Simulated scan of single mutants.
Amino acid sequence: MARIASLQIGFYRVPLPTLLTDSTHGEMRDFELNTVRVRDADGAEGVGYSFTVGRNGAAVDAVLTREIAEIAAGEDADAIERLWHRCWWDLHYGGRGGPTVLALSAFDIALWDLKARRANLPLWRLLGGFDPKVPCYAGGIDLLLPLDELLAQTDANLAKGFRAIKMKVGRKRLDEDVQRVAAMREHLGAELPLMVDANMKWTVDQAIRAARAFQPHDLTWLEEPISPDDLGGHARVVRDGGLPIAAGENLRTLWDFKNLIASEGVTYPEPDVTNCGGVTAFMKIAHLAEAWNLPVTSHGAHDVTVHLLAACPNRSFLEAHGFGLDSYIADPLRIEEGFAIAPEHPGHGITFDWAGLERIRA
Results as ranks from 00 to 15, higher is better:
Leu147Gln: 14
Trp202Val: 04
Lys160Tyr: 05
Gly233Trp: 09
Ala5Ile: 05
Ser263Pro: 06
Arg118Phe: 09
Leu104Met: 15
Val178Ile: 15
Leu145Trp: 12
Ala59Asp: 11
Gly26Ser: 09
Ala59Lys: 10
Ala182Asp: 08
Leu123Lys: 04
Leu219His: 03
His345Thr: 14
Ser227Pro: 02
Arg171His: 08
Arg173Asn: 12
Ile208Ser: 07
Val296Asp: 05
Trp202Ser: 11
Val14Arg: 06
Lys258Val: 12
Ser105Arg: 10
Gly95Asn: 00
Glu290Leu: 14
Asp61Val: 00
Ser105Asp: 08
Arg3Thr: 15
Met200Glu: 15
Glu32Pro: 06
Leu357Ile: 09
Gly140Thr: 03
Glu45Thr: 14
Val279His: 06
Val169Phe: 05
Asp78Asn: 14
Glu32Asn: 08
Ala2Asp: 13
Glu344His: 06
Val63His: 07
Gly95Gln: 00
Ala211Val: 04
Asp113Tyr: 09
Leu102Lys: 14
His287Ala: 14
Tyr93Ala: 13
Trp292Ile: 00
Pro271Tyr: 05
Asp142Leu: 06
Ile360Val: 15
Val38Cys: 12
Ala291Leu: 13
His234Tyr: 15
Asp331Ile: 00
Lys258Leu: 07
Pro15Gly: 03
Arg171Pro: 01
Phe323Leu: 14
Val279Asp: 06
Gly170Ala: 07
Ala355Val: 10
Gln153Pro: 00
Ala183Asp: 09
His307Trp: 03
Gly300Thr: 07
Phe130Val: 12
Gly139Ile: 03
Thr297Gly: 06
Thr100Leu: 00
Asp30Lys: 08
Arg125His: 09
Glu32Thr: 10
Pro269Trp: 09
Gln153Trp: 13
Ala301Leu: 03
Ala5Thr: 09
Asp197Arg: 01
Glu70Lys: 14
Tyr328Cys: 00
Pro225Gly: 06
Met283Gln: 14
Leu144Glu: 14
Leu144Thr: 14
Asp131Asn: 15
Glu224Lys: 10
Asp331Gln: 12
Glu224Ala: 11
Ala362Gln: 11
Thr253His: 01
Gly278Lys: 06
Gln8Ala: 15
Ala106His: 10
Asp229Ala: 13
Ile329Tyr: 01
Pro244Phe: 05
Gly347His: 09
Leu7Thr: 15
Thr220Glu: 13
Asn293Glu: 11
Pro313Met: 02
Trp221Gly: 00
Pro193Val: 04
Ala152Tyr: 07
His187Trp: 04
Gly232Met: 07
Leu102Ile: 00
Ser6Gly: 10
Met184Leu: 13
Phe107Ser: 07
Thr52Tyr: 01
Glu344Leu: 11
Trp202Tyr: 15
Ser6Ile: 04
Gly248Asn: 05
